[in-house]
């Protein structure tokens, strides 16, 4: 039986108590995306300032939720700032692979091969969230902000000038 120390690592509690990049950005020009966990009522709002070439220039997080959702969002914000859209997408894939989430095809069937973490992508502090996998109900808490970020990147790309 997994113990609480697997879940509540010190670095997670630190990000929960002292969340990084907390706040808002004026939107527009920033993209503002909301994510909800209908199960528990947690909500996260991601503000993304993406340059025309797709670099995440700045990010802010607001909303409310448990230590897992809030620390995951905080660590995510530190990890993606200054990265290109491709790097951020690779990070999202790697993080979700760590959370044992297999991307679904549009028709609902799962890919035959679970997505593999990109060997070049370093998760760093985010690896502290690996223990969440042992508590399946909490995986959605950890991935809430990441799904919201992915949606924000899509919206930013859709709004970017053509070419």
């Amino acid at each position: 039986m997994p113990g609480l120390e697997d879940l509540y690592r010190e670095i997670i509690l630190d990000h929960y108590r002292n969340p990084r990049n907390r706040g808002e950005l004026p939107a527009p020009p920033a993209v503002r995306v909301e994510g909800f966990n209908p199960l528990c009522g947690d909500e996260v709002v991601v503000y993304l300032d993406v340059t025309d070439d797709g670099t995440v220039n700045d990010i802010r997080i607001s909303g409310q939720g448990c230590s897992i959702s809030q620390s995951s969002a905080s660590m995510m914000s530190s990890a993606v700032k200054g990265k290109s859209a491709d790097e951020v997408r690779a990070l999202i894939r790697t993080f979700k692979a760590m959370m044992s989430i297999h991307e679904q095809r549009l028709d609902g069937s799962e890919e035959e091969e679970p997505i593999q973490p990109d060997g070049d992508v370093k998760l760093g502090d985010l690896e502290a969230l690996q223990g969440v996998v042992k508590f399946p109900v909490r995986i959605k808490c950890a991935t809430l902000s990441w799904n919201t970020l992915a949606q924000g990147l899509d919206e930013a790309a859709a709004e970017a000038p053509a070419g």
Partner: peptide, 20 residues
């Protein structure tokens, strides 16, 4: 947070609901 509370309580065998 209520979710964290419920998770910690569970370790002591105490079942309470957390959420909306």
């Amino acid at each position: 947070h209520p979710h964290d509370l419920s998770q910690v309580l569970d370790q002591s065998g105490v079942c309470v609901r957390a959420g909306h």
